[in-house]
Design a protein around this nucleic acid. Structure first.
Lengths: 197, 197, 197, 197
DNA sequence: AATGAATGAGACTTCATTCAT
DNA sequence: GATGAATGAAGTCTCATTCAT
């Protein structure tokens, strides 16, 4: 009945379980009970590793952040930029899809409580920051058109989030390749035909 | 103390109050108590008009939907299309901003429960449908480039949602005009400069 | 199963039950469950009337205070002072004995938590204040000897508390009359024989 | 990390730490964790030396008892009795003040649980016994007036406890000298002026 | 003898919903 | 139709104690 583990392992176990639980039921519908049942340990053990439900959620978030950001590769201006952007988008969407929790995050973002929202803010702030930096570099290189980079960064994030979110809402599969191509089209040429003078 | 009203008025009162409460606290943090206190009626009365918290949330959503969609005006191909799109976007963003509940919807969308998600699905389905129809018309007219309209519709929605969502998350004001212009730029020309062959 | 009462009655019921429960098990060992079981209502009902265990404890305290203080009668300087003091003491001890909760209060005074201790401070402050006022009046009338009234007030309270406390500790009955006489002796003549010059 | 000690040293260390912890937070608010953190050993070690929290509390109590009682010096009837009593009182109050745990004991005495109360009974029984013996001796010597010695002993204890208790409750400093003088006055002359015939 | 991860009962509290009045 | 007192399941979290190492 009692299974003694190294703290690191236990923590990892709990984190993995939390991720899965949050992913399948969302934040509010998940209980500590669901997490520990999955791990096969007691409630008390959970609270030896995390101070609160909020905290484990924040930890999951931060873990996600790291993993997802890792897939992005810097753009080499010497090579085909559009293709590199597309590849990055594809990897990004794949990573997001692979991480069910992120899909939860996209759908159930706020409304946890003040501190929970703080964790979210920091997550989004990190994500948007990165995009913004990339955009600014792009502008310097003359690859990205002028504009309010913060706003653009948020729009780009939205471009990515919404298809993922809705796919989850309707429980549809996502064709990662098709999505990344469509996103690239939008980014590189917009939606409207260049007809309208 | 006891105020007897026409059922319709009561229902409307409750709906308005619910909207305000959900808008200011989000779905999960709002309680039936907050709603009835605002209306000045009893809990029992609330349940005479709505079966559950979920149901009143769905009703609020549907009400919103109607109001927001109403601001969109059909595009007249004879006139400056880009400007008409911009104007529609501006009205749309304004409408959304005016309806705090929508902002809630954007941030705290899912995770209520299965039936709640159903309400959500119907909301998003309606919204996306409309955008999709518009896109298809645009394609027929040769104003919109080819592509998977459903996917594009979702992307467009994301483009709109995310800036609004993040502004709420950080409690920032939104410059409606600037946002609608930036959105138009993205839509009409994309993000990347046409340099990249 | 469901028993609907006027709020006042329910509150009174809960207060009475809380008093009894605290009295028999002390603060820490008492649970809300004990209280509601005694009343025959649900936990939820309890929380409709009191915000917390602490709050109901404070309410019990304040109720006690009122009842106990009520038994004290003002001293008439024209009549036999010692006898009046003794009678007051006797009534006081009787009242305290009648209120088991007070005996708890005397034994388990502090250590609830910061707010709980605040409630206690206010209880003791009230009690001591009254004694102090009486002492000052007595000094003015020349009936009470000079001295630090606050300190004296506390000492007097201790004189009263300790026998009651210990009687409870050993589960002994108290001979109210004997105690009040002994207390009077102490107050009027001290402990030591006047021999020692 | 692992520090192996003679059992006696370990036990002493734990006792000292427990005393400090109980003193600063009270019984209920103190946790085993606080104690072992202070000692720098593990929970398991604690339970090698004490069976329970209750037991360590009892041990602390008994240790206190010994130390405090030690300061009392026998009265020499040949010399100024009042002064000797006063000096004893002063040493006693000082000792109590020096031992914060005792102050805890005075405020949070009972309500631990049945066995905890047993420890308490034995503590109080010891203390009262000593006072009672002293009183009886005093009566034999004609220094102390007649009366129920057990009751008187408890009253005397109360006289001492309450000022200490309340000082702690309000977090006030104590003027040991002033207190011992006031106590002596009470003991030797009572509170009321000898006017009342 | 020492460690410290694990336990699990039980505490308080919340709130959507019900139903007697 | 309206009321609001009552419900109770479910939630989060604590902590004295155990026991595999």
């Amino acid at each position: 009945m009692r299974r003694v583990l190294q703290p690191d392992e236990r923590r990892a176990e709990l984190l993995t379980a939390s991720r899965a639980v949050f992913a399948s039921r969302g934040y509010h519908a998940s209980g500590i009970g669901d997490i520990v049942k999955r791990v096969g340990c007691s409630r008390g053990t959970f609270y030896n590793y995390f101070d609160s439900k909020r905290e484990v959620f924040a930890a999951v978030l931060s873990e996600m952040m790291t993993e997802v950001v890792g897939v992005i590769e810097p753009i080499d201006v010497q090579r085909d930029i559009a293709e590199q952007v597309r590849a990055n988008l594809e990897r990004l969407v794949s990573a997001i899809m692979a991480e069910d929790v992120l899909r939860v995050l996209f759908s159930e973002a706020a409304g946890i409580d003040d501190e929970g929202d703080e964790a979210l803010r920091s997550f989004y702030s990190g994500a948007t920051q990165r995009i913004e930096t990339a955009l600014k570099t792009g502008q310097t290189l003359g690859v990205v058109r002028a504009g309010d980079t913060r706003l653009l960064a948020r729009c780009l994030l939205g471009l990515l989030k919404e298809p993922v979110f809705q796919a989850r809402l309707y429980n549809e599969p996502i064709d990662v390749h098709a999505l990344s191509k469509e996103l690239l089209s939008l980014i590189s040429g917009g939606l409207l035909r260049p007809l309208q003078h």
